[in-house]
Write a protein that binds this DNA or RNA. Structure first.
Lengths: 239, 239
DNA sequence: CGAGGTGTTGAAAGTGCTCAAATGGCGTGG
DNA sequence: CCACGCCATTTGAGCACTTTCAACACCTCG
């Protein structure tokens, strides 16, 4: 089982760029474990010994202010990872990571990543590419928070879930709690709920429970993407 | 003159990590030029041939939505650079860069950066460190936009300008236009102006024209940092 | 069935935005 | 040197969007 799951790692951007032997060695030092919903993977301020890769389930990356407010920076699932920004700067996690849907997690020792950067060109470039993408995703978030309204942010979120391929009657499920989506998009649950109503009325989106149906992708993107710099379908990383 | 300015490059984080010969070669392929306020250095969507380093002056990094709104992602000065996130991902600038105070700019061919990554360990690690810091700065922005009020965002901005060393009667000048600071912090000029009034009344900050005086740093940080996850003085990169 | 968590709705308050107008500084052309 | 015009900043008034607080409906799980 462990090995089966580890195999998932070989499909991840940066590890695909690694030669077989190095990867095998890396995997042999990587532990895979199951964590139940509610578990903390790490806390801000802790010494960062590992990069954590999500193999299944969902993990919330967030920070807490001393005033008790919570800022959700990301919510990640299969194939995504975090902690890589600690390896070459600071060595501390700056965010909390909490499992919000039972998850399988791979913990890769940071030291090994560092070693591989030293000896493997392609891996390093892949890592640099990855960090560039991640930074762009953050810029995307900043832009959205500063220029989009709540319904527009949700619309953009839905369009990214839709994948941007089909154009009529796209259907799918929301990946996690509405409350958490709201937090991820920087708004209150109530605001989220009301914004959905607005999207229903003004952008042809049907939402019942976790089921989402977008009548016309184009209509929604007109509503949403006029307030975003990236053209539709949203080019920025999905993350 | 050019050479004098180029010397500034040797003091920049990632170039400090480069060996003398490589750096000399890099510099010989680097052009330095003056650009007047109002000049565009690059536009989103353009092919990214260079990394631009600001040697003096100020440059605004921003995006425009099709609706005409503007999101200012950063405003940088001496020692800062941009475009490094295009080298290993995408190869296109995703933001506009406009000179907002006469600036000396060094243009370093992206291809050379790539070459140096291939042959220089220390440089690569420094670059990875730099990208990590930049990402953290963006996370900082995201957090602020989602949990801080306008006056608090300004307060945090001022505290970072103050440098966090002195504790009473810190004085300094605002680095650029209030209008631009407002945009950088994701608010309207009017909101910025009114928020300053609030800071004057509630946090002991005196602001007259571009002059800023903080009576008690601690008082301001109490007002501001309760809504931020990083303890005072703000640990995130100053950028 | 009851408890707790999730989501929705209403009402009221707050925050920030828009539009408009006044102020003041500063550089240009006369 | 002055008048003019432009731009940055401030202020006022009204409005729109979000938040907050409260209440309630649902659903799931023991």
């Amino acid at each position: 089982m462990e090995n089966a799951k580890k195999h998932l790692l070989t499909e991840i951007d940066i590890f695909k760029a690694m030669d077989k032997e190095s990867l095998a060695s890396l995997l042999s030092h990587t532990s895979v474990f199951l964590r139940a919903k509610g578990t903390m993977l790490c806390m801000a301020g802790e010494d960062a010994q590992h990069i954590y890769v999500v193999l299944s389930g969902w993990v919330k990356i967030y920070r807490e202010t001393s005033g008790g407010a919570e800022a959700v920076l990301d919510v990640i699932t299969t194939g995504a990872y975090f902690g890589e920004d600690t390896i070459f700067d600071g060595g501390l996690y700056l965010s909390n990571a909490e499992v919000i849907a039972d998850a399988e997690i791979a913990a890769i020792p940071s030291a090994l990543i560092k070693e591989n950067v030293e000896k493997n060109q392609d891996f390093t470039k892949a890592l640099l590419g990855h960090m560039s993408r991640k930074q762009k995703a953050k810029e995307h978030d900043v832009e959205h928070l500063s220029v989009q309204s709540a319904p527009q942010r949700i619309g953009c979120f839905l369009l990214r879930l839709a994948g941007g391929n089909s154009f009529k009657n796209v259907s799918f499920d929301l990946p996690y709690d509405k409350t958490l989506i709201a937090a991820r998009l920087g708004m209150q649950p109530e605001t989220f709920s009301r914004a959905l109503t607005k999207l229903r009325n003004e952008a042809g989106v049907e939402i019942t429970g976790t089921k989402v149906k977008i009548d016309e992708v184009e209509r929604l993107s007109t509503y949403t993407c006029g307030a975003c710099s990236s053209e539709f379908p949203c080019k920025d990383t999905k993350k």
